[in-house]
């Protein structure tokens, strides 16, 4: 059993009368963790409290097994952070900045410079690394933020909206890099985002937060299994025939705008759907189990929070 990387107990933070975090209790194991929530839910505040960028008013926080209040500096040596907001050291060029950030975490200059170039390669920055950061596009700044967050080889990286402002191609590249951090290199990632698709794609644990409270904390697999019974079926043609079939089985179904057929079959697996399709000899091109499960779960969680 892997030791928890994040532990909070009754973590509370308020801005005046507004509660940003309300008795947050979390025990998070290593992995790729998606921190989901609507705007203003408390995601960024939670990350900042973990890093002591903001003081918290109640409770306790342990990161990588250490108390952040007493060992904050030592912890940050092993943690990387890329903030949502645009932040850099003015007047520096990209590689100089990454080197500087590595030195701030205690790397000697030679090692820092070498790793800075390696990480800039890793995030896909070319010759632009020799340009001043002030001249960078949003995409380049996002890449640089990721590079500075991992330049000192942390054990955990906290990324706050890392795909903001990126074009679709850039988003895919950054998400692939982030995904590889955990899957290939064993660096835990906390990805804060309001983009469910990003989280669904790369994370294996989900934390849904709203109004400063943790609504859901589970693995993505468990969440999806709770939503079993729905599927999206892709067929080459004969969609209307398929809809008739599903209706005959008393399954709720609809034809989606992309030509896929969505069905709520209610079964634990897809065997019933496949068997039914076999009866009319209609082979599926693809079946996507539990499509939009995360989205549905997210909406459901928010609704329950609103109800409360």
């Amino acid at each position: 059993m892997l030791l928890p990387i994040i532990e909070t107990a009754n973590l509370s933070k308020a801005f005046g009368q507004q509660k940003a975090l309300d008795q947050v209790n979390l025990t998070v194991r290593p992995g790729a963790i998606g921190l989901l929530g609507p705007n203003g839910a408390g995601k960024t505040t939670l990350i900042k409290c973990l890093l002591q960028l903001q003081p918290f008013h109640g409770g306790s926080v342990r990161l990588l097994g250490r108390d952040v209040k007493s060992e904050g500096r030592e912890i940050r040596k092993r943690v990387g952070y890329a903030s949502e907001q645009d932040c850099h050291i003015p007047g520096m060029v990209g590689c100089e900045y990454a080197t500087y950030c590595a030195q701030l975490c205690g790397l000697p200059f030679q090692a820092a410079r070498q790793r800075a170039h390696e990480m800039l390669d890793f995030v896909g920055m070319g010759q632009e690394r020799y340009r001043k950061i002030d001249t960078y596009s949003t995409g380049m700044k996002q890449r640089l933020k990721l590079a500075q967050a991992i330049v000192h080889d942390p054990e955990i990286v906290l990324l706050d909206e890392p795909t903001n402002g990126l074009d679709p191609k850039g988003q895919v590249q950054i998400l692939e890099l982030v995904q590889s951090l955990w899957k290939v290199h064993g660096i835990s990632v906390v990805l804060s985002s309001h983009l469910l698709h990003d989280v669904d794609r790369i994370c294996d644990q989900i934390i849904i937060i709203a109004r400063g409270r943790v609504l859901v904390h589970d693995t993505l697999q468990n969440l999806k299994s709770r939503r079993r019974g729905a599927a999206e079926v892709v067929v080459a043609d004969r969609q209307s025939e398929l809809l008739d079939l599903f209706q005959r089985n008393a399954w709720s179904c609809e034809l989606l705008s992309n030509g896929h057929v969505r069905v709520e079959h209610g079964g634990l697996n897809l065997n019933t759907v496949l068997e039914a399709m076999g009866t009319i000899q209609l082979p599926p091109l693809e079946i996507i189990p539990s499509p939009n499960a995360l989205e549905e779960f997210f909406v459901q969680a928010l609704e329950s929070a609103d109800g409360n």
Partner: peptide, 13 residues
Amino acid sequence: SNAIVVYASKAIG
């Protein structure tokens, strides 16, 4: 430039 956030997130107090 919000560099203050960069410093605060590194291994310095």
